[in-house]
Design a protein around this nucleic acid. Structure first.
Lengths: 219, 219
DNA sequence: CGCACGATTATACGCGCGTATAACAGTCGG
DNA sequence: CCGACTGTTATACGCGCGTATAATCGTGCG
């Protein structure tokens, strides 16, 4: 008895595309780029391999879409973090930083996924543009938040500060995700907040009351 | 006329191994992990594919060796940087940081190479140990340099500072390599030195006289 | 000097990849 | 209610991959 024909199920274009993109991201996050074959992606998404080429011109186009979705998702997470919180500039900055250093952003799968596309980012101008836009958007949000702080600043100072804070957060994001056992839970956030405080000459640790990670800690 | 047999050339085991490792690193740096096939590696190294399996049990073992060599090389570069310079703690720290934010360490190929192995680092305990050791060695060097600074510190303070500085340098390394056009030449070093200065409460920019990047700049 | 051994090359195998294409199955306007 | 349309599946093709193995070549030892 050979396997019966897969049952025919019709879905919207959007749900199929997102399913394929999610499947791709999951597989790359779990097993690196080489694990995301068209057959594995199709199986994960619950379709047959042929369907991929019905929604994407090639596997490469699906890969690009997956990278774009990753970057958009991460910047969206940051934007969400400064939506709800109180109006204080320090609170908003602290919330923004903390959101980047906590799951689901701080996640080994996300780092592996991000790293897996790195060489394509460098060789494909389209993906390079996505990366650059995403990086600059994040940095710009950071810079805008920094500029709202009640400080006297010299011209050009906030740009350099934003670059440094961005780099600091990126580095903590990578190492905190890859070596989770090396840090206490929440320690990455504390380190990030205090280092950014030092760079900017402020004190963010006094403005963490509304952060979910700081219920009653840091005596 | 079919191609003549490749001329038989005998080499030492060490030169063959390093040639194969270098070829692997170059190919991954240029085209990502998928570009480093046994055939491409062999051609780059000037041998035939079969020879790879004479010196390495499998392609995976060669990959691991290439990753180890990458990590060792980068930490060696840092150690070199603090060898020659004057005895001042600030000078040594500044030289160490600058060495990480300047070619050949600051290099897109190196970042792509590093990123290309990331998922293997996570899944292979052997590589994970290499990564962790390399990361902790770098951080430890940093921490030791920080501890020599003439400052009054609280217990546990330098560990957190070293983590933050390490993350900052890592982040600048990645973004500075991937988006070289976004920064002026040497700007990444300046930003790194000033941000580390802020984190540690010192001033490294006054101790850059012997750095090759600071001939007569930063007015 | 010759021969045994190790370094190196040559060839082949099987597998899984991305892709192309044809068959099939629901859906919807007439 | 039927035919055109399109989402979906099934099957096949060719290529390049990592690997295995046999043939070849140089070198050093007895």
């Amino acid at each position: 008895m050979q396997p019966a024909r897969r049952l025919y199920r019709r879905e919207s274009e959007e749900s199929r595309r997102t399913a394929l993109i999610s499947a791709t991201q999951e597989l790359v996050a779990e097993g690196g780029p080489e694990a995301a074959t068209v057959r594995a992606i199709a199986e994960r998404a619950g379709v047959t391999p042929g369907l991929i080429r019905h929604y994407f011109q090639s596997k490469d186009e699906l890969s690009r879409a997956a990278y774009r979705a990753l970057m958009d998702g991460m910047t969206a997470k940051g934007a969400d973090a400064i939506e709800g919180v109180g109006a204080g500039p320090e609170e908003r900055l602290a919330a923004f930083i903390a959101a980047s250093l906590r799951p689901p952003v701080l996640d080994a799968g996300a780092v592996v996924l991000w790293a897996g596309y790195m060489h394509k980012v460098r060789s494909d101008p389209d993906l390079m543009a996505v990366h650059e836009a995403s990086y600059l958007a994040y940095r710009d949000t950071l810079q805008k938040l920094i500029e709202t702080l009640p400080r006297a600043v010299k011209p050009g100072q906030t740009r350099v500060e934003a670059i440094a804070c961005n780099a600091l957060i990126d580095g903590l994001w990578v190492e905190g995700s890859l070596l989770p056992g090396t840090f206490e839970p929440g320690e990455v956030i504390t380190i990030g907040l205090s280092a950014v405080s030092a760079i900017l000459g402020i004190n963010l640790l006094d403005h963490t009351a509304m952060l979910p990670d700081f219920g009653k800690t840091t005596p």
